[in-house]
């Protein structure tokens, strides 16, 4: 399948002697983001080595004695140290990681998977649409685009969460919103009247957006239902499927395409994804329990 943009180029992919063995990192900073999410800043315990990655890639993080979880990288690809992960405490491993303290160690395998088409999108308008924790894998895109802002057309960020309290990176959102070269819209599904911003699902933000469909690359990350509705609205706005990118999630055990768990139709999400063009997944998304 030919695509306008190839999301495969993965600069972080390194030759690992044994990709199943975690490298030990140390927690440099721990920040609570929301009630159930937190951000870890990590450095190699050995003190050396850098962890280059491409926007959209993920690592397998290991909590000693508990287990592993696939977590997207949410730091700056142009400045990959420290390694930054924003994690939602939903499973055994991620809940255990929530209890880590500065100085504690954590195992890291990766980076794995495909990247957002940040390089390929140069010269185009960039439309970033995130839902909930979905902003974490898209933050590297924002960093990378802003690092070379002149090389892109308009830049939009649309972000929806359940409530104002669930919003990630509040300070940075404020900063991005204050820029003249970036349009930021946020919305929440529900709020008390103290919230001054928008209330409504993330698709409501799209309604008024004026897009140049032939010159825009859309990158969407959030719950699968949210991505499907957003993509449908983008199609209504005459965007072609090969200009719409989504990041998929499935069970992952190895991260290197050998364990079989993350199969999605003919592909493995850990190596063919997690970032896909919409034409790669539109048929699969229409089917249940694939």
């Amino acid at each position: 399948m030919e695509h306008v943009f190839d999301s495969k180029a993965a600069p972080g992919r390194r030759a690992v002697l044994s990709p199943m063995v975690p490298e030990i990192f140390r927690v440099e900073k721990y920040r609570k983001e929301t009630l159930d999410t937190y951000t870890l800043e990590l450095k190699p315990a050995s003190g050396t080595g850098e962890h280059r990655f491409g926007a959209g890639q993920f690592n397998m993080l290991y909590k000693f004695g508990v287990g592993e979880a696939a977590i997207s990288i949410s730091g700056d690809p142009t400045s990959p140290n420290p390694l930054i992960h924003t994690i939602r405490a939903v499973g055994t491993a991620t809940k255990a990681m929530a209890k880590l303290k500065v100085g504690d160690t954590i195992g890291v395998r990766g980076p794995f998977g495909s990247c957002w088409p940040v390089e390929a999108a140069k010269g185009n308008d960039v439309l970033i649409i995130a839902g909930g924790i979905g902003l974490a894998p898209l933050r590297p895109v924002i960093y990378q685009v802003l690092a070379e802002r002149r090389k892109y057309g308009k830049v939009f960020l649309l972000y929806g969460t359940r409530t104002p309290e669930d919003m990630l990176y509040r300070a940075e959102l404020e900063k991005w919103r204050a820029r003249f070269d970036m349009e930021v819209h946020v919305t929440v599904d529900r709020a008390s009247s103290e919230w001054h911003g928008n209330v409504g699902v993330v698709t409501t933000l799209l309604k008024k957006l004026v897009l140049d469909p032939d010159n825009t690359v859309a990158m969407i990350c959030g719950p699968e239902i949210m991505m499907r509705f957003v993509a449908m609205d983008l199609i209504k706005k005459e965007m072609t499927l090969d200009r719409i990118y989504v990041s998929m999630e499935r069970n992952m055990k190895c991260g290197i395409g050998l364990c079989g768990h993350c199969q999605y139709g003919p592909t493995f999400i850990c190596k063919d994804g997690p970032v896909y063009t919409y034409d790669q997944v539109i048929e699969l998304l229409a089917r249940r329990e694939i």
């Binding site: 909930g132 359940r162 669930d166 599904d189 699902v201 698709t203 719950p223 239902i225 509705f229």
Partner: peptide
């Protein structure tokens, strides 16, 4: 449009149940 948005809202898609 509002019905569709309301349905998504009802699903509470950012929760852990869907």
């Amino acid at each position: 449009e509002r019905l569709s948005a309301t349905r998504i809202q009802l699903l509470d898609i950012y929760g852990t149940r869907v």
